[in-house]
Simulated assay, not measured.
Amino acid sequence: MRRTAETPADRQKRVWDKSAPRYDKQIAFFEKLIGGGREWLTSRARGRVLEVAVGTGRNLPHYPAETPVTGIELSPGMVAIARRRAADIGRDFDLLEGDAEHLPFGDASFDTVVCALSLCTIPDPAAAIGEMRRVLVPGGRLLLLDHIGSSWPLIRAAQWLVERFTIATAGEHFTRRQLPLVQAAGFQIVETERLRAGTAERIHAVKPA
């Protein structure tokens, strides 16, 4: 009997389910390098918020109390941790399992879409950004934070070498850059900032009205 080939989404689900119990400890060091990134994102969120690839919910404590947030995440293991985090802080978030490349929401459903440290692992980031645009209202905000290819050649070369392992094992890219994809999707750029030798980038963009 032939086994069905594993899709990229299935692989990512398997990888992140396996790493979910260790994720918070692993990501904590990187977050120190880009200090304030989660606060930067959540302070700019307005209206109905969708967080794509919400992971273990590390952004959740930073949203203003009155902000309605829906989170979607491919990994059931990650969603379970995010739900526990929401319960621990006494907040009511709608946290769902789903695929960033096929968002289960209607057109123009949200005022803000947030995605943090995740487009580096989503198999088709252009498709995911297209879906983010679709579910945003005209004039809606797109807020992104991710690690990207460094602007320093030696560091970028080291990132490329690391990718030879991480892409094969976990679908993790270090030399991607999301800004050109956001521009190609028709967003208007409001602000961008590259940090730490250009290895991380924050993007605030809007869907044209």
Rank of each mutant, 00 (worst) to 15 (best):
D107F: 01
A170R: 12
D146E: 15
L181A: 04
V162H: 06
A87R: 15
T70N: 02
G77K: 03
R133A: 14
E201I: 15
L145G: 12
F187G: 04
V49C: 03
A200D: 07
A127I: 08
A9C: 02
P123T: 11
Q188P: 00
P68R: 04
V79N: 07
H102K: 13
M78D: 15
P153S: 06
S75V: 12
N59L: 10
T192I: 13
H204V: 13
A9Y: 01
T7E: 11
V182K: 00
P123Q: 07
K25L: 11
S151I: 11
G90Y: 02
N59H: 06
G140M: 08
A209D: 13
A100S: 08
R22F: 14
P138S: 06
F30I: 09
G47K: 03
G149H: 01
A65N: 04
I72M: 06
A80Y: 03
E191C: 11
S118Y: 06
R202F: 13
R85K: 15
L143E: 03
R85D: 09
V79S: 08
S109A: 15
R46S: 11
V190H: 09
S150I: 10
D88E: 14
E193P: 01
P138Q: 05
H173F: 13
L154H: 05
A127P: 02
A170H: 12
T192W: 10
G98Y: 03
H173E: 06
A28H: 10
A116P: 02
A127E: 13
R141I: 03
C115W: 00
G106W: 01
L96A: 08
V162T: 08
F105T: 08
V69F: 00
H204P: 04
A158C: 04
C115G: 12
K32I: 07
E51G: 04
A86G: 06
K32G: 15
S118I: 07
S151F: 00
E73G: 10
A116Y: 07
I72Q: 05
R14V: 11
A157M: 14
R196Q: 12
A185K: 01
R134I: 09
R202D: 02
L41F: 08
N59R: 05
E66T: 10
P61Y: 07
V52W: 00
V54E: 05
A185F: 01
T67E: 00
G37H: 10
A168G: 09
P61C: 08
P153W: 01
A197Y: 14
A108Q: 13
I81G: 06
L95F: 03
I27N: 12
G149T: 04
R3V: 14
A5T: 12
A128N: 04
R176D: 09
A127S: 13
F29W: 15
G139V: 10
V113T: 02
L74Q: 07
S109M: 03
A5H: 02
F110A: 10
L95Q: 06
L144N: 14
L33M: 15
V52G: 04
L161I: 14
A184H: 00
R85S: 09
A128E: 08
K32T: 11
R164C: 05
I203Q: 11
Y23K: 11
A20K: 02
F93I: 07
G130D: 09
F187R: 01
V114E: 04
I122P: 06
Q159E: 11
R196C: 11
T192E: 14
D92F: 00
P153R: 03
G35I: 07
P68G: 01
